[in-house]
Nucleic acid binder design. Sequence first.
DNA 1: TGTCCACTGGAAGGGAGGGCTT
DNA 2: AAGCCCTCCCTTCCAGTGGACA
Length: 410
Amino acid sequence: MEESIFKKHIEKRNRLVKNKNILQTSYLPEELPHRTAEIDSIATIIATAFSGDKPSNIMIFGKPGTGKTAVMNFIGNELKKEDPDEHSCVYIYINCGVVDTQYGVLLNIGNQIIIDFEKRIPFAGWSIEKVYSEMRNYIDEQRKIVIVVLDELDRLVHKSSDDVLYNLSKINEDLKYSKLSLIGISNDLKFMEFLDPRVKSRMSEEKMVFHPYDAGQLEDILRSRAKAAIEDGILDAEVIPYCAALAARDTGDARMALDLLRISAEIAERSGENIVTRAHVRSAKNKIELDTTSEVIKTLTQQSKTVLMSIIYNTKRDKKLMTTGDVYSTYEELCNILNITPNTQRRITDLISELDMLGIVHARVKSFGRAGRTKEIELSIPDEICKMLENEESMSRLKNYRPPTQTRLM
DNA sequence: TGTCCACTGGAAGGGAGGGCTT
DNA sequence: AAGCCCTCCCTTCCAGTGGACA
């Protein structure tokens, strides 16, 4: 029988890594190295739920990849072990990066509790008040402790004010039989400053900070995962320390360290090599950076893409540093060619700030004295990514556009 | 010392879109 | 079908501002 076209690829794959799943950042290991103290203190607080008392609300702070989410998922699993039928408490996890509206959060809490499909809260149409009061009734009917984890809480507050937190944190006043406790997780230590003082004090009955892992701790994490996922002798001795060092130098992000290790192995596998080396790690780093930015750019709206194109064109005509006014005039030009109605300059200011936050451009407010005060903007993505955007279908009308030569110096 | 530039960024609000209830 | 409600994207209006220059 003839070999299928997949045969040689299948053989090549999975040769180095036994179980790639274990190296995924979403994988929840049996134990979390260097986080036992944190797990313990959260467990102490939550344990009160089993005697029917409401655990204190907790705020957890820490940079990305410091294990906040992993710790909470771990605790969620442990809760299920202790109380499989949810006799005394219900654990609800919401990622506010995904669900970032007041309506969405209330809907999610409500619908995770309601078992009866008929009674589910609809995705839209109800007033916030109605969703809130239905949800509150469902919770009260349960006669249990409900623990709600709000991950990436800062995103929710930034996008839709602190009304949700206000409502949720005072819900206990309206509950007769159940109690709700909140666990907020945030990357941003400062976001609490902007909260209503009442919400602030109710939310931070307990406060914890997860510190970034240092290189040594990242090494431990990588080694414990690698032991389960990769055969001995496949990793060059310096691979794990190098991944750990790169991630530690950045922000001590365990997610990044794991991604580096997994992708290095994939690269080595794909090129048919038997050992993962430092060079593979370096190309993995490169690949991760390219992939994340190109993914972000793909999901931009047409308007944002056009603004970005304007910045790219200005850069091309040797104007590496430009002002909002420069971007806007190029933008108007491009809108004309692309046949889309231009937004106002006020709106473009916001879009430029968004691109800045995404790390696609670098913008800082600068005063030029008599020449006014404005943003100074600089592109900060590599050429390859610009090319990708230029080749997008939505930009095809710009194929024959040649930016006019520079007319004005900054 | 005051002026003045080219914006910044907050506030308020409008309207389209999606989806509910009655 | 009419009437609501929420969200998203956007506009209009405007007070505020850092610093070069007269």
